Computed example of a mutant assay.
Amino acid sequence: MGSLINFPGLQSPSSWVLPSVYTPARIERMGRANEVARRLRALGYRILAEDPIPDDGGPAILQIDVGAAGTRSLQHLGGCAARNTLTGIESTTIDGVRVIWQIAEAS
């Protein structure tokens, strides 16, 4: 990502990244994502990736590895799960945080 600030004499975006500003709303989103991640780890899930401020402007996203823990707990915590067979992703929302995982392949 290049600089979003227009510096005099700068002809092209610089290669450095602007520091993030931690507003109260951003801190709250990151805290909620961390809380959900801790709950999922306690249930035996492994967090593969986190995006507290996704580009689509939606809620934070946690990508998990279901492993041997299965999906029943996730469906219970989120109330339901949505499956997209085209992308191979299943997802639910837990306390305002999107949780996504790969669909297990049937053997």
Results as ranks from 00 to 15, higher is better:
residue 1 M to Y: 00
residue 99 V to R: 03
residue 51 D to F: 07
residue 84 N to A: 05
residue 52 P to I: 08
residue 69 A to M: 02
residue 53 I to K: 02
residue 56 D to Y: 08
residue 32 R to C: 06
residue 1 M to T: 00
residue 98 R to V: 10
residue 98 R to L: 07
residue 107 S to V: 14
residue 102 Q to T: 14
residue 16 W to D: 00
residue 30 M to N: 03
residue 4 L to E: 06
residue 25 A to S: 13
residue 56 D to C: 08
residue 14 S to V: 03
residue 51 D to G: 07
residue 62 L to V: 06
residue 75 Q to L: 04
residue 44 G to F: 02
residue 65 D to I: 04
residue 45 Y to T: 07
residue 86 L to C: 01
residue 30 M to D: 02
residue 91 S to R: 12
residue 60 A to D: 09
residue 64 I to T: 00
residue 52 P to V: 11
residue 59 P to I: 08
residue 27 I to S: 09
residue 62 L to M: 01
residue 52 P to T: 09
residue 17 V to Q: 05
residue 25 A to T: 09
residue 10 L to Q: 13
residue 27 I to L: 15
residue 36 V to T: 05
residue 68 A to C: 05
residue 47 I to S: 02
residue 3 S to C: 10
residue 47 I to E: 05
residue 68 A to K: 13
residue 39 R to N: 07
residue 14 S to T: 10
residue 80 C to S: 14
residue 34 N to R: 01
residue 60 A to M: 02
residue 93 T to N: 08
residue 106 A to Q: 15
residue 50 E to R: 11
residue 23 T to I: 04
residue 39 R to Q: 14
residue 5 I to Q: 07
residue 56 D to K: 05
residue 41 R to W: 02
residue 106 A to G: 12
residue 46 R to T: 13
residue 72 R to V: 13
residue 62 L to D: 04
residue 18 L to V: 00
residue 47 I to C: 05
residue 65 D to H: 14
residue 78 G to H: 06
residue 55 D to M: 12
residue 26 R to T: 07
residue 59 P to N: 11
residue 95 D to P: 05
residue 75 Q to N: 14
residue 100 I to E: 15
residue 40 L to C: 07
residue 25 A to E: 15
residue 90 E to W: 04
residue 25 A to R: 13
residue 2 G to E: 00
residue 7 F to H: 10
residue 3 S to M: 04
residue 10 L to V: 14
residue 48 L to V: 15
residue 1 M to N: 01
residue 3 S to D: 11
residue 101 W to D: 07
residue 61 I to M: 07
residue 13 P to K: 12
residue 62 L to H: 04
residue 91 S to C: 04
residue 35 E to M: 09
residue 102 Q to H: 12
residue 30 M to I: 13
residue 46 R to I: 04
residue 4 L to N: 11
residue 39 R to C: 07
residue 81 A to L: 14
residue 36 V to M: 00
residue 48 L to A: 15
residue 38 R to P: 03
residue 21 V to A: 13
residue 41 R to A: 10
residue 24 P to M: 00
residue 51 D to S: 12
residue 51 D to L: 06
residue 5 I to T: 11
residue 84 N to K: 05
residue 52 P to A: 06
residue 80 C to Q: 13
residue 81 A to K: 09
residue 14 S to C: 02
residue 40 L to A: 03
residue 12 S to H: 05
residue 24 P to C: 04
residue 86 L to R: 13
residue 55 D to W: 09
residue 3 S to F: 03
residue 47 I to D: 03
residue 72 R to Y: 12
residue 101 W to C: 10
residue 53 I to H: 11
residue 72 R to D: 12
residue 32 R to H: 00
residue 63 Q to S: 15
residue 75 Q to R: 15
residue 57 G to P: 08
residue 3 S to H: 11
residue 10 L to I: 12
residue 63 Q to P: 04
residue 32 R to E: 11
